[in-house]
Nucleic acid binder design. Sequence first.
DNA 1: AATAGTCACAACCGCCGAGGT
DNA 2: TACCTCGGCGGTTGTGACTAT
Length: 265
Amino acid sequence: MGRSPCCEKAHTNRGAWTKEEDERLIAYIKGYGEGCWRSLPKAAGLLRCGKSCRLRWINYLRPGLKRGNFTEEEDELIIKLHGLLGNKWSLIASQLPGRTDNEIKNYWNTHIKRKLIGRGVDPRAHGPANDGAGLAINPSRPRGVPVAVDEATVNPPSTGLAEDGHSSVTSMDDERCPDLNLDLSISPPCSEATEPTPMSGPPCVPVICLCSNLGLQASEACSCQATPIRHVLRYHRSLEEEEEEEEEEEEEEEGQHIDSFVHGC
DNA sequence: AATAGTCACAACCGCCGAGGT
DNA sequence: TACCTCGGCGGTTGTGACTAT
């Protein structure tokens, strides 16, 4: 049995969005919020696929987005994050306020790749061009498995655990990006995870803590393991330089999905 | 001025995981 | 447990703009 299509393609508009469609979508979301994307087009009077509406909103219409003109700092941050995370554009985007995964992905493919090649760096391996050594990203890694998780798999939490119960995966990244302090903390599975107690509140589940400390020392306390949220990939931004920015963003972009995923330890 | 080639980016496609029944 | 829906993600494509010839 095949998957049902996300929309009736015969009766939906495709291609570039018109100004009127944008306005309808904005007006609807402002009035009713982001609800069920599948039913949104009909409710908003749009002849569009729900996924198309979602993409349009997230990538172009959502307030607080920057457009174009990546700064040199953003370039370098993207390169470093890509070296660590690979093509996890949504994770990379969450480190760049106002940028979307699609925008970063396009920017990578059109600008940064060329820039790295110009430097003699293999944009995929983040090593010397034509050199298989120093491969940072395993091309065969299954989708959704960042470097840190692989590391945790290879090196069980019984080794290299920090005092707070987290393992620190830093050496590889220290070598690759000496100026970038990326501390990936991974908490060991906690016993309650396998024995949930329904009446005692939210179950404690294994939390993969991707606290990539961009500029923050690894010893900084992380409270990820205490959270009841399930299936969390956590990381935080360079707090020192972004504290102020976050305050502003909280006012401007309250409730936006970026913040729902970014965790300031 | 016309044409071909290249670039940039918006949009689409298909897959996956989570959650509900 | 199996199936379904939905949201989200990464890869790819389509197309308009720009540049070179």
